[in-house]
């Protein structure tokens, strides 16, 4: 189903050249020498990256200022740097619990998504079965479903099961778009592993679960990493559903931000500090997948 994309994007050599014995040594080899970028490429990149970083810098800048300084003076950097805004967040449970809530449901969602997507992606990449194409398409439509359509019915569904305001509710709800995504990405990576490996393992007497865990999963480790990254990313950035399904106990940080701002007037400094702290987890995880991120986008076709 995805061989076309796989073959053209695969950075680690053509599929099918990987001997079974090399399974352990399987890694990503640097791509061959590639064409130089545009002549004025560095200029374009400088301008583009400046454009990307300026708004973020402005937020960081604000987070180190006092509210008086933010509203009364206009300066490109904090004149009297203060940690007061961060202290507010780290000493108030209603603030820092938001981060714990967000990370809890994001991790739960990632684990659930990957766990169910692994066998399904294997089935899609290795076998044909009744209705496989329809099923794959149906999964795709869920990735494309507007969250706004689902907000209200989700609320009623999870109320009926008594799951409102639990981390599990948000984790399950985010499966709506993350499971199809994970299946998609994993299927792409799995199709890059030649089927001869499976067959050799079965001849060697491996059972399916043992083969899958011992041989197959290490082979697609980077694929699992990329899929987990994308699940993390989309669960971390989503707010509409997360906010709808929670009231206090599992409220995500992003929702706490909006509420506190409207309640206590405009505490710009704390708002900025809270925003900066939501950027950090993302920045950390990107660093680990930086070499696969483009691959993940393309292979997973996301």
């Amino acid at each position: 189903m995805s061989t076309g994309v796989t073959k053209s994007i695969n950075l680690n050599g053509p599929a099918g050249t990987l001997p079974a014995s090399a399974a352990k040594a399987h890694g990503f080899v640097a791509p061959p020498k590639v064409r130089k970028p545009l002549h004025l490429g560095w200029l374009v990149m400088t301008i583009y990256l400046t454009f990307l970083l300026l708004p973020i810098y402005w937020l960081v800048n604000m987070s180190f200022k006092t509210n008086v300084e933010i509203t009364n003076t206009f300066s490109l950097w904090p004149n009297n740097p203060t940690l007061r805004n961060y202290t507010v967040i780290f000493t108030d449970p209603s603030w820092y619990n938001g981060y714990i809530n967000s990370i809890t449901y994001v991790v739960m969602n990632t684990v659930i998504s990957i766990a169910v997507a692994l066998p399904a992606a294997y089935a899609f990449s290795r076998y044909r079965f009744l209705g496989d194409k329809h099923l794959f398409f149906w999964l795709l439509t869920n990735r494309m479903a507007p969250p706004a359509v689902f907000a209200l019915p989700f609320f009623q569904l999870y109320s009926a099961f008594g799951l409102i305001d639990t981390h599990l509710a948000v984790a399950l709800a985010h499966c709506l778009f993350n499971v199809p995504l994970a299946v998609w990405i994993l299927e792409g990576f799995m199709s890059g592993v030649p089927r001869e490996i499976d067959e050799t393992a079965y001849i060697d007497g491996y059972s399916f679960p043992r083969f899958f865990v011992k041989i197959f999963m290490p082979l697609i480790a980077s694929g699992i990493g990329v899929a987990a990254f994308f699940c993390f990313m989309f669960s971390w950035v989503e707010l509409l559903i997360a906010r709808t399904l929670t009231t206090t106990a599992a409220k995500p940080i992003a929702a706490i931000m909006t509420r506190t701002v409207s309640a206590s007037g405009l505490d710009w400094g704390v708002l900025a500090a809270a925003g900066v702290l939501t950027i950090i987890p993302g920045a950390l995880v990107i660093w680990f997948v930086r070499n696969y991120i483009a691959k993940g986008f393309a292979l997973g076709r996301v």
Partner: peptide, 24 residues
């Protein structure tokens, strides 16, 4: 460096993206 910096906006919660530009 380019990959990480470019991916940064993609990993910011969407309402924080809104907040950043609202302030900016």
């Amino acid at each position: 460096i380019c990959l990480v910096l470019m991916a940064l906006p993609l990993l910011i919660p969407w309402n924080v993206v809104g907040t950043i530009w609202q302030v900016f």
